[in-house]
Amino acid sequence: MAGPAPFVDLGKKAKDLLTKDYNFDQKFTLSMLSTTGMGLTATGLKKDQNFFGDINTVYTSGSTTVDMKVDTYSNVSTKVTVNDVWPCSKAALSFRIPDHKSGKLDVQYLHPHAAIDSSIGLNPTPLLELSATIGSKELALGGEIGFDTASASFTKYTAGINMNKPDFSVALLLTDKGQALKASYIHSVNPFTCVAAEMAHRFSTYENTFTIGSSHAVDPFTVVKTRFSDNGKVAMLCQREWRPKSLVTFSAEYDSKAINASPKMGLALALKP
């Protein structure tokens, strides 16, 4: 994409390095894709003594994609996305059954110098959301607002700026209705190693928090990640692509402040035959 990223993606590179693929439960995912445009993904998650699962079906035909998910509790989530409703745009209609108030319409417009996302709930008192960024792929400035028509109040307003260079990316966000300042940074040390940090300051309590982490490609099929937070939690992850597009991921986390607690460990297996 030549233009600025959508506002929701500001700081996403650092956040992904620090959080993506970490899992401290047992998770299994099986994905299958047919030549007709139909994709099927089954996911099972064991958390403590509870088991959760869902089946997700995606069908693509031309510029239209239909995404349907059924979970353990028989909730059905459906999303219909149409690309190029008009040039450089797409629209998505989503809803959940049996929640009749969950309907939502999202519209996105991407321009070489702007990215606009809007969302409206399809009910008598909808939640309205709008976000926009302007600039370029290298430097973007933007903001987002959310308005609840039921209470006639703003649910959120956020502003941010993002700078991207070939070897680093930095983002600065004013969040929580102006009550917190968050900064994130990711740097490619070399083609195999990246480091990232995320820091936040809350103005009302003067509280500061931070998380730092790294990602290192041991070989073309193995990635090792580490993470340390100011709350004393240390985590690591080892991910191996043991066959094309099939991954096995081992995660572990130790809380240095919880002396009597055992380390958390998780295993995730993703298969794509």
Rank of each mutant, 00 (worst) to 15 (best):
residue 131 S to M: 03
residue 200 A to Y: 00
residue 189 V to Q: 04
residue 46 K to H: 08
residue 265 M to E: 02
residue 152 A to Q: 09
residue 39 G to C: 06
residue 86 W to M: 12
residue 126 P to Y: 09
residue 196 A to Q: 00
residue 118 S to W: 03
residue 16 D to K: 09
residue 18 L to I: 02
residue 148 D to E: 13
residue 104 K to I: 01
residue 178 G to V: 14
residue 102 S to M: 07
residue 103 G to S: 08
residue 238 C to K: 03
residue 99 D to H: 13
residue 235 A to P: 08
residue 135 G to S: 05
residue 18 L to Q: 02
residue 23 N to Y: 08
residue 120 I to R: 10
residue 265 M to I: 13
residue 102 S to I: 07
residue 42 A to I: 12
residue 141 L to W: 11
residue 88 C to G: 08
residue 180 A to I: 02
residue 30 L to M: 10
residue 270 A to G: 06
residue 103 G to C: 07
residue 151 S to K: 15
residue 229 S to W: 04
residue 268 A to L: 04
residue 252 A to L: 14
residue 134 I to A: 13
residue 206 Y to C: 15
residue 209 T to P: 11
residue 187 H to D: 06
residue 142 G to F: 05
residue 192 F to T: 14
residue 161 I to P: 01
residue 25 D to H: 11
residue 175 T to F: 04
residue 251 S to N: 06
residue 34 S to P: 01
residue 81 T to M: 10
residue 71 D to A: 07
residue 193 T to F: 10
residue 83 N to A: 10
residue 182 K to F: 07
residue 145 I to M: 15
residue 41 T to E: 09
residue 99 D to P: 14
residue 130 L to K: 03
residue 28 F to A: 13
residue 134 I to R: 09
residue 69 K to I: 05
residue 209 T to L: 08
residue 5 A to N: 05
residue 206 Y to T: 15
residue 199 M to E: 05
residue 58 V to H: 02
residue 270 A to S: 12
residue 234 V to Y: 11
residue 24 F to W: 10
residue 112 P to S: 07
residue 109 Y to Q: 05
residue 146 G to K: 15
residue 208 N to R: 12
residue 119 S to Y: 00
residue 149 T to S: 15
residue 230 D to Q: 15
residue 96 R to T: 09
residue 66 V to I: 13
residue 133 T to Q: 01
residue 242 W to R: 02
residue 146 G to L: 09
residue 221 F to Q: 04
residue 261 A to K: 14
residue 184 S to K: 08
residue 176 D to I: 12
residue 96 R to H: 03
residue 267 L to R: 12
residue 70 V to I: 14
residue 41 T to D: 04
residue 175 T to Q: 15
residue 87 P to C: 04
residue 239 Q to M: 05
residue 188 S to M: 07
residue 157 Y to I: 09
residue 99 D to M: 11
residue 69 K to A: 07
residue 20 K to P: 03
residue 209 T to Q: 14
residue 4 P to A: 01
residue 261 A to H: 11
residue 140 A to Y: 03
residue 84 D to T: 11
residue 156 K to I: 08
residue 242 W to P: 02
residue 235 A to T: 04
residue 259 I to G: 07
residue 97 I to M: 13
residue 212 I to C: 09
residue 163 M to W: 12
residue 230 D to P: 09
residue 134 I to C: 10
residue 220 P to S: 06
residue 70 V to M: 14
residue 173 L to R: 15
residue 10 L to D: 00
residue 55 I to D: 04
residue 229 S to H: 05
residue 53 G to Q: 04
residue 61 S to F: 07
residue 10 L to Y: 05
residue 253 E to R: 15
residue 70 V to N: 04
residue 130 L to V: 14
residue 6 P to V: 01
residue 86 W to Q: 08
residue 261 A to P: 10
residue 163 M to C: 13
residue 196 A to W: 00
residue 90 K to N: 13
residue 167 D to T: 13
residue 128 L to G: 07
residue 75 N to K: 12
residue 236 M to S: 09
residue 69 K to N: 08
residue 214 S to W: 00
residue 22 Y to P: 06
residue 10 L to F: 12
residue 203 F to D: 14
residue 51 F to W: 07
residue 105 L to Y: 03
residue 54 D to L: 10
residue 52 F to G: 10
residue 228 F to T: 09
residue 74 S to P: 06
residue 61 S to C: 02
residue 37 G to T: 05
residue 256 S to Q: 12
residue 200 A to G: 09
residue 202 R to Y: 14
residue 31 S to H: 02
residue 255 D to H: 10
residue 89 S to H: 03
residue 153 S to P: 01
residue 208 N to E: 13
